[in-house]
Simulated scan of single mutants.
Amino acid sequence: MLQAIMTQPGTIEFREVPIPEVKSNQIKIKIKRIGVCGSDVHVNHGKHPYTSYPVVQGHEISAEVVEIGSDVKHVAIGDKVTIQPQVVCGKCYPCTHGMYNDCEELKVMGFQTTGMASEYFVVDANKAIALPEGMSWEQGAFIEPLAVAVHAVRRAGDIKGKRVLVLGGGPIGNLVSQTAKAMGAEAVLISELSPYRLEVARRCGIKTVDAQNEDLLEAIYQHFGADKADYIFECIGINPTMKQAIDYARKGSTIVVVGVFADLGAINMGFVQDHELSLVGSAMYREEDYIKAIELVKEQRIEVDLLVTHRVKFGDYAEAYKIIDEQKDKAMKVIIEMEE
C-alpha cells in the first residue's frame, strides 16, 4: 500500500509498504478522507514539541471496513467508520477512571505513533466508531475535530441558557461555537480577526465581533449585557487572547482552555483569584463525545460543509500544507481525498 511519510519538516515522501496482518481483535480499513488540522501544521513546520521524524500523519479520518479479525463482533465489513486516534496504557489513574483521554502515557496516531495517511490501516477494533450510512466521507472526517468541540463544551458544564464567548474563529473555534449553540446556549458570540473566518461563522449562524476593528469589551456588553459571558472558550492558544479571556470575564465566569499553547502562558492570576474565575482545561475527547458529534451532524444541527475550503488528492499531500501556509486564514479545513 502507498503511505505518506513526513521524513523531516516540510518534506513528504510516498513509499510502498506492506499492509499489516489483521489480528483477531483488529480491523483493516480503507481510508477515504483525511482532514488536516492545526497540530499537523505544527509538525510540518517542525514546531510540534512531542513529535519526531519520520512520522506518518493523519488522525481526522473516515474509512470503510474491508477486513475484520476473528474476534470482532461489533464491526462488519462495509461499515463506515472513523477512528479514535489515542493509544493509551489502560492502567494509570485517568485510564482506570474513565478519563483515558488524559492517559499518563498517551500517544496519538500521527504524532507519537503511526497515523492513518495511507491507503489502508490496521487498527484495534475498539478504536472504531460507526458512522451513519447517509453521512458523507467528508462529514465523517469532521467527527474527530467536532468531538474536540463537544468535549470542550461538556467541560464547561451545563451550558443551557448560558451566554458564551468564543475567542478564535478557526475550525475548532467555529465548531465550539456551533456546538454550544446546538447544546442549548442562549447566546453565542465569536471573536476573530479574519474577515473570511468571520463570514464563515456568520454563515454558520453564529454572531460575530470583528476583533480587528471593534472593541471586544463593548461587543460583550452589547450582546450579553452587564452580566457579560458565563463561559469563555479560548480556542487559539496564545497569550493575548488568554489575557482577554481573564480581563473581560465577569466575576464567577468559567474559562475553558481549548487552544494548544506553544509558549508558556502569562496570565493575571490575581484576577483569577479575586474574581473567583474557574480555569478549565480541555484535552481531546472520549467515545461519548464522538457519539454526540455524530448525532449533531446527523440531525443537521452542526454545519461542517461550509468549513471545507480546499480539497487535494492523496498524491498531492504536500500541496495541502502549501495551501495552508499561503492562504492562511482562508484555508479553514483542507481535506485529503483518497482514490476511490
Results as ranks from 00 to 15, higher is better:
Ile336Trp: 10
Val87Lys: 08
Lys91Ala: 14
Tyr248Phe: 15
Tyr290Met: 08
Val256Cys: 04
Glu234Gly: 04
Ile19Gly: 00
Asp263Lys: 14
Glu64Ser: 14
Ile246Phe: 14
Cys37Ile: 01
Ala117Thr: 11
Ala229Val: 01
Thr179Ala: 07
Ser118Met: 06
Cys204Trp: 08
Asp289Thr: 02
Val166Thr: 01
Met338Ala: 03
Leu175Cys: 07
Gly10Trp: 09
Glu67Leu: 02
Thr309Val: 02
His151Phe: 12
Ala283Cys: 10
Thr11Pro: 00
Glu340Ala: 14
Ala219Met: 12
His151Met: 01
Val304Leu: 07
Ala187Arg: 15
Gly205Phe: 14
Pro85Leu: 05
Met269Cys: 11
Thr96Ser: 10
Phe224Ala: 00
Phe142Gly: 00
Glu186His: 13
Gly35Ser: 04
Lys251His: 13
Cys204Ala: 13
Lys162Tyr: 10
Phe111Ser: 00
Thr208His: 08
Ile159Gln: 08
Glu60Pro: 10
Leu296Pro: 03
Ile83Ala: 04
Val257Ser: 15
His223Ala: 11
Glu138Asp: 06
Lys228Ile: 09
Lys207Ser: 14
Ile61Phe: 13
Ala331Ser: 08
Ala187Asn: 10
Met109Thr: 05
Ala152Asn: 05
Pro85Trp: 10
Lys292Gly: 02
Val308Trp: 07
Ala180Met: 12
Val258Cys: 07
Met99Asp: 06
Ala185Thr: 02
Gly173His: 07
Ser70Asn: 01
Lys328Phe: 13
Glu16His: 11
Lys32Arg: 15
Asn126Val: 08
Ala229Gln: 03
Ala219Gly: 03
Met242Phe: 15
Lys228Thr: 08
Tyr196Ser: 04
Lys333Asp: 03
Ile336Asp: 04
Ile68Pro: 03
Glu133Met: 12
Met109Gly: 09
Leu175Phe: 12
Glu119Thr: 06
Val258Ala: 06
Lys298Ala: 14
Gly157Ile: 11
Glu234Tyr: 03
Arg311Gln: 11
Lys91Glu: 15
Thr7Met: 08
Asp102Phe: 15
Ser282Phe: 12
Ile27Pro: 00
Pro54His: 03
Cys235Ser: 14
Cys89Trp: 03
Leu106Glu: 02
Val88Cys: 11
Pro240Thr: 05
Val334Lys: 03
Tyr248Cys: 01
Glu105Arg: 14
Asp274Leu: 14
Glu299Gln: 12
Gln300Ile: 01
Ala182Glu: 01
Pro85Asp: 07
Tyr317Val: 09
Lys107Met: 15
Thr11Gly: 00
Ile159Ala: 07
Gly157Asp: 06
Val308Thr: 12
Ala245Gly: 02
Met6Phe: 12
Phe224Met: 03
Tyr231Gln: 04
Ala149Thr: 03
Asp79Trp: 09
Phe14Cys: 05
Leu216Gly: 00
Arg33Leu: 06
Lys47Ala: 12
Tyr120Asn: 01
